[in-house]
Write a protein that binds this DNA or RNA. Structure first.
Lengths: 255, 255
DNA sequence: TATGGAGCTTGACGCAACGTCAAGGTCAAG
DNA sequence: CTTGACCTTGACGTTGCGTCAAGCTCCATA
């Protein structure tokens, strides 16, 4: 029985098993200066004592609460208050939860939409753009039930009707692109003929709902302002041409 | 005016701005083969057309729903169904949400505990039970001054010491619960390692006072008999497992 | 005592999705 | 010809380890 306090030490694997982690983690913690072995053998082996075990316990506890290793380091060094760190961390967690909730909701509605026939309207109406994605935008601009009506109208169509409607849209768009690139004037007969078709097209799309001056000109502005649309109308310049032609039409027929 | 379809193209910055992302991202997408520029100038400049813009839109839409780039790649290539991918992804999101909720709850209770915990051994020593409440019981079982000693030991500790000691207790208990539920044998190495830690823990709790065979095995029995304790060790079955493991340990080391 | 198998060591790459320099060409305008 | 804005290709940093890879050490058995 010696008088020297025999401190029991553990190999790296023993410590890992006891604490429910891996030796790699322990080495990592040493690398970043978070947890040093209490002793290192002549052969380079790491040995840990109870004190180190205690420190490891705290590290793992804080880590499973989600704290980052640098933050844990500060807490253990006493440079940062435990509860303060936890409180700050809690904020992040709550934020993250909100983000997740929103994302989950988005994914659900997206699945919903693509499951039902709306995917047709979605991917086809603007040749790749989901107009239902802009629901709020539409509602805000043209009234709360405009969207609902449009939606109902679309779903009420037969497959054949939808197909033909889609074809009309695409012809219209390519017509606009061609006209825009030809350099014709916005108030030319050809451009106005296109504007007339655009009007008819929108009228049918709105399920008989009135296409007002504001709606028509506003839509024109949106084509220009929003790259999601302008891309389909021949870029910014093309969209500007469409807008101008629509404005002329509106002034003549809807004012 | 030629008949060749003049396709408008955009520089990398224009595309980035239009789509609300960065040029670095576009280059990254090219690197991983997700989105190629429609044309590359003799100087190496990247140019994108409307089709590329469309593809980018879809990429960004799916990305903001949280899908990984490889998954998005498959969807765009048609090798993976959109809704299937989204549905699988939704599962992950829901799982992640659960994890977050639990973590948030843990952090909250931890903050709570460390806040009010500094004062008494009271509610913490046995994770919610006031050991001073069992004064007579302790005195009767392990001697009249055992309680007094334990009490002095506890009050003599610094706040930091008490905190770490409390954390050790909790780790031990959760370790026992996990072990009990895993179905391992009471005399297995892992169970005995826990028993060893339990012994060390009690030794430190007793302030250097000897932990006898009787004390150790008696305590094990108490864990089973008293629901106030068994609740913390994974119910009656869990507590029985703890008792058995402690008995084996006592036979081997304390007999 | 030789050997085999565990256990230990130090690198170093990989992951997810880019952000962020760094060093240097290109292009239109003054 | 010189700015200055925009473009290019590297290449490292981020977070917390997992996962080889190559080689040394230790203990127990033949």
């Amino acid at each position: 029985m010696g008088m020297t306090p025999e401190v029991t030490t553990y190999s790296i694997q023993e410590v890992a098993k006891a604490a429910g982690t891996t030796s790699r983690t322990l080495r990592h913690y040493q690398d970043i200066g978070l947890l040093e072995p209490s002793r290192t053998g002549h052969n380079g082996y790491r040995y840990y004592d109870d004190e180190a075990l205690l420190r490891l316990q705290r590290i793992l506890l804080l880590r499973q609460l989600g704290l980052g290793l640098p933050e844990i380091h500060k807490v253990l060094e006493g440079t940062r208050d435990t509860t303060a760190a936890l409180r700050g961390h809690l904020e992040l967690l709550l934020q993250e939860r909100d983000r997740l909730e929103k994302q989950i909701a988005s994914v659900k509605t997206t699945i919903d939409k693509t499951e039902r026939g709306e995917q047709l309207m979605a991917e086809e109406m603007f040749d790749g753009f989901d107009h239902t994605q802009y629901k709020e935008e539409v509602e805000e601009r043209w009234g709360k039930d405009a969207y609902a009506k449009g939606d109902r109208w679309w779903r009420g169509m037969s497959d054949a009707e939808r197909t033909s409607w889609r074809e009309r849209s695409q012809q219209l768009m390519s017509g606009w692109v061609a006209a825009g690139q030809s350099g014709m004037a916005a108030d030319s007969d050809e451009a106005q003929a296109l504007a007339q078709r655009q009007f008819d097209w929108l009228a049918s799309a709105n399920g008989g709902q009135e296409v007002s001056f504001g709606y028509f000109t506003g839509l024109g502005e949106m084509y220009v302002a929003d790259p999601r649309f302008s891309a389909n109308y021949g870029g910014e310049q093309g969209a500007a041409f469409v807008r101008d032609a629509m404005k002329v039409y509106a002034d003549r027929h809807l004012a």
